[in-house]
Each structure stands twice: as structure tokens, then as C-alpha cells.
Amino acid sequence: MENFIEVRDVVKQYVGHLALDHVSMNVPQGSIYGLLGPNGAGKTSLIRIINLITRADSGEVLLDGHKIAESDVSQIGYLPEERGLYKKMKVGDHIVYLARLKGLSRVEARSLMEQWLERFELSEWRDKKVEALSKGMQQKVQFIATVIHRPRLLIFDEPFSGFDPVNAEQLKREILALRDEGSTILFSTHNMESVEAICQQISLINHSRVVLQGDVAAIKQSHKKNIIAVDLAGDETLAPNDALYTLLPREAGSRESLIRLNAGVTMREAIGWLNEHCHLAGFHEILPSMNEIFINTVKLNQHAEA
């Protein structure tokens, strides 16, 4: 897969504070890429550099193989974490205005605006002022304004905040649909569940540096602690086997026993042995959640710095 965005060794220094310390990352074409990190880690600084709001002090950003330039603005759609619209403008006019700033013609912007309002069931609000809309509806308007010019790169900063579960689900469907249509999506969030659900790759930024990067599945594999949950038929208890595994305390209320494989033991060996000696009803490997990985990595990072 070709990289649509390449961030190479970007450094950004603000007065008295280093925001980005030699950050690099590659976002494959047509993927959903998660940009993770605690507050103040440098995510927003990086996003602002990618969408040309600010400039990096050193390093470069490539878009589709060329150095990103002012003319690429029309290829980017940005939904900032802090949403905002002109309150006194009419919904339709507002969407058309932002679309035209991104280079659409008036006619094109109008017809797309109508389509999108229809899709989000906001058509009847077209001639109402933005301030008359509920917060959720304003969020939808902002989402429309972000995607209306069919950008090849979409940057969503905490897109789900402020949405109720029903609307969040609709938003997720729209985001996946945009990816399927070929857009590359950069997705900045704290919400680890949504990362596991939709991101293929991630970069975790902490204290201005990338501390973890790569494919979500691979990261989970590499962070696994070789723990297997085993379900035995009936009331049978798990027999110990010091050569293969260690028994872990069972989680309260769970039927499953937890074992940690000893170093060098494969799951196949352990399950094979268990299958012969007990009535095995089921088993599955426990992979760490992205949430755990996030917290552990950030903590580890803090210890290392201290």
C-alpha cells in the first residue's frame, strides 16, 4: 500500500516548549490511521502542520509523494476537536461558504449541500440560523462542511465527542464509507474502543515524541502476555503443570481459568496437553486492549523520563 501522507522528522518548537520532537509517520493510502496520545502530547500541533495551518521548524510532510503546499488545502478536510460555526449564518449558506473556500463552485457547492443535508435529515433546517440548531445537529453540519469538497485526506480530531450513541454510529458508518470511496483518514482520539474498531494503524505520541507506532493487530500481538482463558466442562478444576504454564487467579464471577504460558511454550503445546488431561470446553487468547497498551506505554514513558 502506498503512503498517502509521509511525515518526516518534523520538529516544532514554541516559545519555551518543544511541541514535536523529530516525529515521523506514514499513513497508507485509503486507510484509517489513528493518532493517539494524552492531552498536550503534540497531536494538535502535528495536525496543524499537516493541514498547513502552521509550519514545521524542520522536517517535511509529503502528500501523495510531493511536498505538501498551499494548493493542497482543497484536498484536505479538517474537523477540529473544538467545533465552531458562525452562529448567525444560515445552515445552507454556511456549508456553501466553507465549500467554496475549499475551491468548489457555487453551483456545485449548492447541489452537494442539498444532498448532504438530505442524507443527515437536516434539509428542513437549511434556511435556519446555525444558532437555532441543537448541538448534535451543529456537529453534523460541521461534519458535512468537512467532507463536502470530497477531500482525499480527512483529518478528524475527536470526531465522536458530543455525539449520542445513535449519531455516533451513523458518523462511524459515514467515516467507513468515505474510506471505502478512497479517502485517507487521519483520526485523532482518546477513545481507544473506536481505535480498535476502525483504525488499521496508529501512532502514539507522548511528550512530543512517537512512543508506539504500527499496525493495530501487530501491536496487540507484540504486547500480549501469553495469557489464555480456558473453559473446562462441568466443575472440573484445572490441573497445574509447572512445565507448561502458571495458574493465575480466576476473575470473579468468571467460569474461565486463566493461565500464563511459560517462556518458550507455544499455545499449541499447552492446549494439546490440556486437551488430553481435562475436558476442554473452550479457550481463547487474551490480547491486551488498546486502552491497556496506551496506559502502559504512557506510564512506562513517564518512568523512563523520570
Binding site: 488545502v73 484536505i76 479538517y78 473544538e82 465552531g84 460555526l85 458562525y86 452562529k87 460541521q142
Partner: peptide, 16 residues
């Protein structure tokens, strides 16, 4: 107003 509205961030990503 633009600043408190936060519309400015969207504007800044569309124009200079």
C-alpha cells in the same frame, strides 16, 4: 467572536 466560536480553526485550514 471567530476565536471564541472556534470557527477560526476551520477557517485557518481553508485559507491563509
Amino acid at each position: 467572536e471567530e476565536k471564541t466560536n472556534r470557527i477560526v480553526e476551520v477557517m485557518a485550514s481553508s485559507c491563509k
